[in-house]
Amino acid sequence: MDIIGSLLGMIILIPVFILITVLIKLENRNGPVFFKQVRVGRNGKEFTIYKFRSMVSNAEELKMLLLEQNDIKDGPVFKMKEDPRVTRIGKFIRKTSLDELPQLINVLKGDMSLVGPRPPLPEEVAQYSSYEKQRLKVTPGLTCYWQVSGRSNIGFDEWVRLDLKYMEERNMIIDLKLIFKTVFVLLGSKDAY
């Protein structure tokens, strides 16, 4: 399902990939189109995740100056509703999660699945409790219960609870429901930033 789904998605979305690439380059000709970052996958194995770049090129350096403004107060995840590092096109592709589309490459490579807990950063995992580390027992995914249940409005504790719920319940029917629900949530999303 992952291989067929990611291949079909990449073929169908070629025009979207081209349009986003052009818009990113129009906003910043010298900046890269893609953002690459190390994430933690199944059983703690690290891999490189791909996204369309939605922030200024030096966003990782600027993050250290913004840590006190984190909107997620419980847990190690950093998110800001009005993040000054986000570009104009970045605001749109983040709100609609179009910035995540290059992760279809990660699914094709086997680093990720279409459905599963979102892959965390190594510095987040370093702060995990043993309870939270249970998220790492399955292959991370493009979408999950968190993605369709409020996203950035959900605290980290609830996020982990939803991931563990998915791990207990997962099957092909739930995966298909989450994939279809994700499409509809993203089209009208107000909870992503």
Rank of each mutant, 00 (worst) to 15 (best):
R88H: 10
P76N: 05
L121C: 00
E61H: 13
K81V: 02
F52L: 03
L67H: 12
Y50I: 07
D74I: 07
L65D: 15
I89H: 02
R118G: 02
I72E: 14
V38R: 15
V77P: 08
I24G: 03
L26Y: 11
F34K: 03
G44V: 09
L26D: 11
G41Y: 07
G90E: 02
A59L: 05
T87F: 00
V115G: 12
T96F: 07
P120Q: 05
V125M: 01
V125T: 09
F17I: 08
E60Y: 03
K81P: 05
D83L: 01
L13K: 04
G5F: 15
L104C: 09
I12E: 12
P15N: 06
K36G: 12
L108W: 10
F35R: 02
Q127T: 07
D99I: 09
K63G: 12
V86L: 02
I18V: 14
Q69K: 15
T21H: 11
F35W: 00
V38S: 14
L98G: 00
M112Y: 05
E61I: 15
P15F: 12
V38M: 15
V56G: 06
K63Y: 06
L19Y: 06
D99G: 11
V56L: 11
N70T: 08
N28V: 14
P76Q: 06
P84M: 00
Q37W: 08
F78M: 07
I14M: 04
A59H: 02
I20T: 11
Y50V: 09
I105V: 13
D111C: 08
I89N: 02
R85Q: 01
L8C: 15
M10S: 10
I105Q: 03
L19N: 13
E124Q: 13
V33P: 04
T21L: 00
K45V: 09
L7N: 01
R53Q: 07
K81E: 01
G116Q: 08
E46W: 12
F78Y: 00
K73G: 04
P76I: 08
E100F: 00
N43M: 10
K25E: 11
P119M: 12
L114K: 07
L65M: 14
L121I: 03
N43W: 12
T48E: 14
G41N: 11
K36S: 15
R85N: 05
T48S: 12
L7M: 14
R118E: 05
G90Y: 04
P102R: 01
L108Y: 11
R39L: 10
S54W: 11
F92A: 10
S54Y: 04
G44M: 12
R42D: 04
S97L: 08
D71P: 05
E27C: 06
V38W: 14
R39K: 13
L98C: 10
N28Y: 06
F78A: 08
V40T: 14
M55C: 07
N70K: 11
D83R: 03
F47M: 13
Q127W: 07
I93A: 01
L66G: 13
T21D: 07
P84E: 10
L66Q: 09
P117L: 06
S97T: 09
V107T: 06
G116R: 02
V33H: 08
I89M: 02
G31E: 10
L108D: 04
I18T: 10
E68C: 15
K91Q: 03
V115S: 11
Y50K: 10
F34D: 06
P117G: 04
G5T: 14
